[in-house]
Design a binder for these strands. Structure first.
Lengths: 220, 220
DNA sequence: GCTTAAGCGGAACCATGCTCCGTATTATAT
DNA sequence: ATATAATACGGAGCATGGTTCCGCTTAAGC
């Protein structure tokens, strides 16, 4: 009944991110190459299946799609919820990392706008996760904190750059924007297709420096 | 695959409430006595089990506790969700009916306070139902409307009486109070025991006519 | 190459939602 | 009161999904 998740996710991260230069201090063994391959395949497969069928999708389906047996799934992720949490962390990382990539490739406002759409797409794939988060499963306990810890700085960086360039208003609260977008995308079920994208685009456009009056009570 | 739930719940209600004086227009048959007994037992058993273990409790457990077979459960409630919805309606009714009972037995403010605690206790037993409501199951579609339709008038009556007696402030919005209490009780998981009760009591005490300044923007 | 421990796969186990059908009970016509 | 049909009952059984177990395979270090 002990939690392996954190240990696994950590080693997973250090391996997956490609920074194999890290000798890891020599404390714990290296992950075997085939195991690492399977972990990668599982995370990718699980992400795809979760996005298509929600987090309630059967483990067997994920295993099959990854080309491994269910035993392998449970070797790396002792419980279903550990897999879900790992995928979630992985996607948070990918989304956060996209910030610097976009920042290097585009103008300040363009980068901000593109990242927000990227973030919106990420939130939109989270069918059923909101419910899972409230289920009380310990595997999810650290997720909200991780979410903020990684995504907030990423967004803040983009906002600051755009702010410095003078292309957006300066009286916006980063956290408010992030949660507003999340709300828009979560409640966008069963609306017309593209609804969330349109609403988010609208929101971002509202950030442009322009003829808008200042927002009462906002800080950043 | 057709929905029997509404039909059943209706007949259930007309029988359960004890108003057997209603000849029902002669359209559909009377429910057999043994069937009615089992329906009653099931609703009671399910309410107890749901309160103890949440709405995810296994059907078999509910059937056993009610002293019937699972076949009987599914005869009356074609799907799990139909049972949950029926129990929910039943408890909404009980809570709404408590309003007039309390109103007859107590002073205006006392009645109001007692009913609010009753309502809070009702909301507190709803572990997991919030998630279920968002699951998209058709059986739950009508519940939110029913919730408002029955509980709002009940509360309004108590508020009006207390208002007329001059014992509470008059600038309160009934709907706001109801949802505020619900929020307090829903998010009160994993807090110290009695937390919700204390917060609700605080809220109600704030309704007393006294030295408070008026609340900005509130309507009744 | 040899050894060894990590890793693998999937059969099997258990829990749970739901269905089916032979049997029992109730209501009603006679 | 009895017969008969309609209704209801119960629980074995099916399908699905999470989780465990264990004999076989294979990467990694010598």
């Amino acid at each position: 009944m002990f939690r392996l998740a954190s240990e696994i996710v950590v080693s997973d991260k250090s391996q997956i991110q490609g920074d194999s230069s890290e000798p890891q201090g020599g404390a714990d063994r290296r992950v075997r190459a085939d195991a690492q391959r399977n972990i990668d395949a599982l995370l990718q497969s699980a992400a795809a299946v979760f996005a298509a069928s929600g987090v309630d999708a059967p483990v067997r389906e994920i295993a099959e799609k990854a080309g491994v047996g269910v035993g392998t799934v449970y070797r790396h992720f002792p419980q279903r919820s550990d897999l879900i949490a790992a995928v979630f962390r992985h996607e948070i990382d990918a989304c956060a990392d996209a910030a610097s990539t976009l920042s290097n490739a585009h103008e300040p406002f363009e980068a901000l706008a593109k990242w927000v759409q990227r973030y919106a797409a990420f939130v939109a794939t989270k069918r059923g996760l909101a419910a899972a988060l409230h289920s009380g499963d310990q595997a999810y306990d650290a997720l909200p904190a991780y979410f903020k810890e990684r995504l907030r700085p990423a967004f803040r960086t983009l906002v600051r750059r755009a702010s410095a360039a003078g292309v957006i208003r300066t009286d916006v609260n980063a956290d408010e924007i992030l949660s507003a977008i999340a709300s828009l995308c979560m409640s966008a079920k069963e609306k017309r297709p593209g609804h969330a994208e349109r609403m988010v685009a609208l929101l971002v456009d509202g950030l442009r420096r322009g003829a808008h009056p200042p927002i009462a009570g906002a800080r950043e």
